[in-house]
Amino acid sequence: MQLEGIHTALVTPFDDRGELDEQAVVRLVHAQVDAGVRGLVVAGGTGEGLALTDEEWARLLSVVVQAAAGRATVTAHVSALSTAAAVRNAERARTIGAEIAMLQAPYDVSLTDDEVALYFAAVAAVGLPVMAYNNVSTGISLSVDLIARLAEIEGVRYLKDSSSDAARMVEVQLGTPAEFQVLLGKDSFALFGFLSGARAAVLGSANAFPEACVRLHRLAVLVEDQSSARAAWRDIAPLMRFFEQESYVAAVKAATTLGGIPVGDPRSPTLPLPVAKRAELERLLAAAQQAPATA
């Protein structure tokens, strides 16, 4: 299955007590699908997956699968610090109804390439297509050679790459099978990636402004109108930069709430966006909303 379009790295809504807000999850999913988002990534970094209990993780995924109702591809982040735990997560995700398992290598210990490959192979054996996650924010970046090796494992079909290294992206594309698909995983790199041939992206920004992200993809990839794509990009680039310069989860959650879907604050130890930064965010959102509509 080739992936297309915007796949939103969903935030996880919490209520005023800090508990999972299932009604807000449903509203968020419907808003994303109605805007034209093609996929939903559950319990990743943006979704505070490591802050969820096992029960919350399963319930969140179940609510997203039911709300999406086949209208968007659901990817579950199944990473764990042990192979056995990651395999259990993948098995639960498959049972609940996820279509793809996103997996990053454990980063609390230094692993050899052989160990990482065995970890991925064990999870891929569960039967869900695997999206390898090169999450450079952990301080560990998968080498091009290791990515090529993972791409040879049966069932490892995709790579979410959160780096912004254009040369590296080209190396990965040239060094992996044609059916292995690289998805953009860094918001501020989206325009360049689309214009360089990527057909899908996993973006946290889409929680707050899904229509604008979908428009960018349509202009850059489907219509191939570079001039209009650049204009659409200029409208949202300041917001994406803001997210990446601040506490990303806190900023995206604040923007999503300001956009009309209250999703609560991040869980501790992540702090809410400071009041002064929230005022700056409001100004950026207002400026983006006042920008001329791009065809």
Rank of each mutant, 00 (worst) to 15 (best):
T256Q: 06
R59H: 08
F194Q: 08
D113P: 05
A58S: 11
R168L: 10
A121K: 15
R230I: 06
L258M: 14
S227R: 14
T83E: 07
V33S: 05
S227H: 13
A220W: 08
V33E: 03
D114N: 05
V25G: 05
P238Y: 09
A286H: 11
K186C: 04
G47C: 07
T12M: 07
Q226H: 14
Y133H: 13
D34S: 11
R27G: 07
T12G: 00
G97V: 14
C213R: 06
L50M: 05
V65H: 07
L20S: 05
S228C: 11
A279I: 03
A35H: 12
V126W: 03
A86K: 09
R38A: 15
E280L: 11
L150A: 01
G204V: 10
L52A: 01
A198H: 11
A122Y: 13
R230Y: 11
R59E: 03
V41D: 04
V252W: 13
T73N: 02
V249L: 08
P269M: 07
A251G: 02
V249K: 10
D16L: 14
A255W: 08
T8S: 08
V29K: 14
L81I: 09
A287C: 00
E56I: 09
S268I: 14
P266Y: 06
V29N: 08
T75G: 02
L61R: 12
W233F: 12
K160N: 09
R59Q: 06
P106G: 05
V109P: 00
G264A: 07
D108V: 05
V182G: 01
L222V: 14
R17D: 12
A220C: 01
V136W: 09
R17M: 11
Q104M: 14
R92T: 06
M102Y: 10
S141K: 06
V65K: 13
L273N: 02
A124T: 04
R218H: 13
L184N: 07
D187W: 11
I261E: 12
G44R: 12
E282T: 03
L50Q: 06
A151I: 09
Y107C: 12
I96L: 10
E224N: 07
V144K: 09
G197A: 05
R149E: 00
D265C: 15
S79Y: 02
R149W: 06
L183Y: 02
H30Y: 03
N89G: 01
A67M: 12
L271H: 13
V78W: 04
C213E: 04
A31R: 15
I6D: 02
M102V: 04
M131Y: 02
A200D: 08
L61G: 12
I140N: 06
K277C: 00
E280I: 09
T12V: 11
I261V: 15
L195Q: 09
A220L: 01
L40R: 15
A72G: 05
S162M: 13
A254W: 08
G97R: 15
D235I: 13
L10F: 06
G70F: 11
R94G: 04
A132F: 01
G47T: 03
L174W: 03
G259K: 10
M1W: 11
V78L: 03
Q290Y: 02
E56T: 07
H7I: 08
Y158C: 06
A90V: 07
S228N: 11
E171N: 05
V37P: 00
A24M: 12
Q104E: 09
D145V: 10
H30V: 08
H77G: 00
R92S: 07
T176Q: 13
L20M: 10
V63L: 04
T112Q: 10
R38T: 14
F180V: 11
